[in-house]
Design a protein around this nucleic acid. Structure first.
Length: 423
RNA sequence: GGAGAGGUGGCAGAGCGGUUGAAUGCGGCGGUCUUGAAAACCGUUGUCCGUGCAAGCGGACCGAGGGUUCGAAUCCCUCCCUCUCCGCCA
């Protein structure tokens, strides 16, 4: 959520920035400023009324003490009128505030100046590419076929007990999952991230804090009886650790990592290219989350990108990094780098990580602030990234490393899996 | 799940209808004293909103949301949470 004061002070900049998302926010931004102005007017009048009411109440108290009953009764009548007025104003104020917040929720984050203009993923900018795409010849199998052949992932069994998009990992497949999770966590911890294990369900306030609510309600699984949501990513619980907090500057950088399963309804997004592990309702992911001083958040973003690079390089997977264009950028993000691995049998790039700087957009909703050198409270910057999401990494590992002898496990993973080949 | 107790400032802990935004203690910050430190003493110390160049002024906030009242931290209702005992249980 953008700050009204920021919109007022940088109106043209905000409009220009948001145009990169292919929207023209001018009207709604104007409405926001009008709504805020109205809010202030009502607030002022309401406060004046309450001030008068408070004054009269004190006088009544004094008059009673002095035994001046009649005078007190006269004042009482006056206060009743004021109270009615105050109630009306309070209702108006609440309504205006609701309207204002409703408008603010509609405005996405302003893209960073470096974000390229563009409509969709075709306009994303490839900024880095690494590794050789293996040539598997004409008989290469897609990962879902390999999964079946080696009996390591059972999609049908998942359908039986839960439904589509909930695979069962078996045998060497299950051990590979565990190996990857541990490998990622170890690497993240070595890079200075503190390991956390958050709950996998979150309450409503947390959903609002990171921006899943109110808009993307349909994307999360909701447990109505207890009004809890299954997390779509560890970003939600981990970032919300810091909701309603005032950090001190020496707390920076805050660096957390967490493994969690992620649950996504993916309503409406089923279709082509979602076979096998490409898109799931439940998948495993190791996340990194940072809270940073605004002056250093882009440096932090670069560090995160460099760190994720090392993970994919260690796994010997060909990958590229794309900078998302305005049209493809997530609602809350100011700048996002996507990591995509090459899936050699599908001959497709698969997104395995998304590393973003949200600047103060989430922090504003979270009320996540810090005290600067002058003891002034300012919004912190939040960032996060996958390091990494498992399914598509597994898909690429299976496809790229297949041979007649089985599927080769990258050297760094062998101490974690305990085997060198899936066979 | 059953029974009981309770949620007050960074923490501890009073207040239980009217100068109470809140006693007191601890902590924090500033100062006096000291070669330095400690102790002692003095002062200061919540958040958000509105208004103002500022000093200031005004409003809201004692778990959350409603209600009663001229007036609520104090009374009533609903919800949430914590603790103790019992039950169940990995």
């Amino acid at each position: 959520m953008l700050q009204v004061s920021y919109i007022a002070a940088h109106f043209d900049e905000v409009v220009e920035g948001l145009k990169k998302r292919n929207i023209d926010p001018t009207d709604i931004l104007k409405k926001i400023l009008e709504s805020d102005k109205k809010r202030k007017q009502i607030k002022t009048e309401s406060d004046q009324t309450l001030a008068e009411l408070n004054k009269i109440s004190k006088e009544i108290g004094l008059l009673y003490k002095q035994g001046e009953r009649n005078k007190a009764e006269i004042l009482k009548q006056k206060s009743v009128l004021l109270k009615e007025k105050s109630k009306t104003l309070a209702a108006e104020l609440a309504e205006t505030e609701k309207e204002l917040i409703g408008l603010l929720y509609q405005i996405p984050n302003v893209p960073h100046p470096s974000v390229p203009a563009g409509k969709d993923e075709a306009d994303n900018e490839v900024v880095f590419e690494w590794g050789e795409k293996p040539d598997l010849g004409p008989h290469a199998l897609a990962h879902w076929e390999l999964a079946k052949q080696y009996d390591i992932i059972d999609f049908e069994l998942g359908v039986k007990i839960t439904g589509a998009g909930f695979p069962v990992y078996k045998n060497q497949g299950a051990r590979l999952q565990r190996a990857l999770i541990n490998f990622f966590l170890d690497r993240n911890v070595a890079a200075g991230y503190s390991e956390m294990q958050p709950p996998h369900l979150i309450n409503e306030a947390s959903g609002y804090g990171t921006g899943q609510l109110p808009d993307k309600e349909g994307q999360m699984y909701h447990i109505e009886k207890d009004n809890l949501y299954l997390i779509p990513t560890a970003e939600v619980p981990v970032t919300n650790f810091y909701r309603d907090m005032i950090l001190s500057e020496k707390d920076f950088p805050v660096k957390n990592t967490a493994y969690t399963p992620c649950f996504r309804r993916e309503a409406g997004s089923w279709g082509a290219h979602v076979r096998g592990l490409n898109r799931l309702h439940q998948f495993d992911k190791v996340e990194i989350v940072r809270i940073e001083h605004p002056d250093r958040s882009y440096q932090a973003l670069d560090e995160m990108v460099e760190h994720v690079k090392t993970l994919l390089q260690a796994l010997e997977l060909p990958f590229r990094i794309v900078k998302l264009c305005g049209g493809d950028l997530g609602f809350t993000s100011a700048l996002t780098y996507d990591f995509e691995v090459w899936s050699a049998a599908q001959k497709r790039w698969l997104e395995v990580s998304s590393v973003s700087n949200f600047e103060s957009f989430q922090a504003n909703r979270l009320k996540l602030r810090f005290k600067d050198k002058d003891n002034k409270k300012r919004l912190a910057h939040t960032l996060n990234g996958s390091a990494l999401a498992l399914p598509r990494v597994v898909a690429a590992l299976l496809e790229n490393n297949q041979s007649a002898e089985g599927i080769r496990i990258p050297g760094v993973l062998v101490p974690y899996t305990g085997f060198e080949v899936i066979d």
